[in-house]
Write a protein that binds this DNA or RNA. Structure first.
Lengths: 190, 190
DNA sequence: GCCTCGCCATACACAGGTGTATGGTAGCGC
DNA sequence: GCGCTACCATACACCTGTGTATGGCGAGGC
């Protein structure tokens, strides 16, 4: 009766991943408190009955979201850019050059922001954020290490690099004053 | 009858600022959606009747919060550190040396995070964030300019400096791997 | 000593969300 | 073609929050 709004599933039945995808949309728009079952059901064109088949609880969905985010965020590190062909400085530079104004990028940034806020009151979310931050920092430090920097200096540079990456997404600057492309020179990438 | 939990007002009547203060507490803990009238009233030891005397609406409270945040954030820039005695590089260094683990600092960071997430769906919040970011970037660029950097380079350094400042608050790292104090050397502050 | 006014409590109608219990249905195995 | 199973709809009880209307109450003007 109701038309499915999901992209992949047109008429077949929903699976848990469809709920998780929709949950991330809601998370990006309104934070973890906006991840509510009834609105998600309306968005998916089904009723709550479907949800309680796939999940026991609202908390279960939250857990599944964290698990999924850990997977995605870990997977992205080092695989967005082909990790075999490029030199380390080239890989870092390409990370900085990733689009930041596309719908995809904005959604990802909003999701991260929401999870970081969520992590302030939820221990599980805090653990996930801590883990992902450590993974990313370690990866960037590894790249700087491959460029010849000492481990200590590589860690510092990695932190600054990660800071620039996050700030580029979170600081709302006019696009005219965007200094993104010039960051490379200050991050020892030339 | 009910005991007032606010710090300043022990038994006299509440004013709008008391509501706004409590609202910022709720904002820091759960985002803008957690700024609800009923829970705030319970926290303040009064009922909704008081709220609807001082504010017409929930939206009015949100507006007042944004106005207050604009005021505080603008005021903090350049006045946390005595703006007359110190040299520009000293002022920047002291900004980096500001505590980040105190309850006050964590609350402020959480509030900013929540407002940035809020700004993704609310135009007024987005304007406030954009304004504050511009003010801060301009201030840091001015300091770098006073250190002798060219306007263009000063703006770049200011962005990186601001990025480091935000990241120090948002990236959840173990305190052992904290590189905060070493940032200065990478930001042309020595 | 009344009256007004600032401030708050109480009560009501309404909306929206949660979880549960139960029923319906389409498809597949055999 | 029977039945089982996966998946979803429906209905119910409950809770929490909003906004509004109205009543109460203490303090100061005069």
């Amino acid at each position: 009766m109701a038309s499915r709004t999901a992209a992949s599933n047109t008429s077949t039945s929903l699976d848990a991943d469809a709920w998780i995808d929709a949950a991330f949309d809601a998370l990006a728009e309104g934070g973890i408190d906006a991840v509510r079952i009834d609105p998600l059901a309306k968005r998916l064109g089904v009723t709550r009955g479907s949800f309680y088949w796939h999940f026991t609880d609202r908390a279960a969905l939250h857990q599944a979201m964290l698990k999924e985010w850990r997977k995605r965020a870990s997977y992205q590190v080092g695989s967005r850019i082909d990790s075999r062909t490029s030199a380390p400085d080239e890989r870092l530079r390409q990370n900085l050059a990733l689009p930041k104004s596309t719908a995809r990028a904005k959604r990802a940034a909003a999701i991260e922001l929401a999870i970081r806020l969520w992590a302030q009151r939820d221990a599980q979310a805090a653990r996930a954020v801590k883990h992902i931050d450590a993974v990313r920092l370690k990866y960037y430090a590894k790249l700087y290490g491959e460029m010849g920097l000492s481990p200590v200096l590589a860690r510092k540079r990695a932190f600054l690099f990660y800071a620039a990456l996050l700030a580029r997404a979170y600081i709302s600057t006019d696009d005219e004053t965007d200094v993104g492309d010039d960051l490379a020179s200050m991050l020892s990438l030339d």
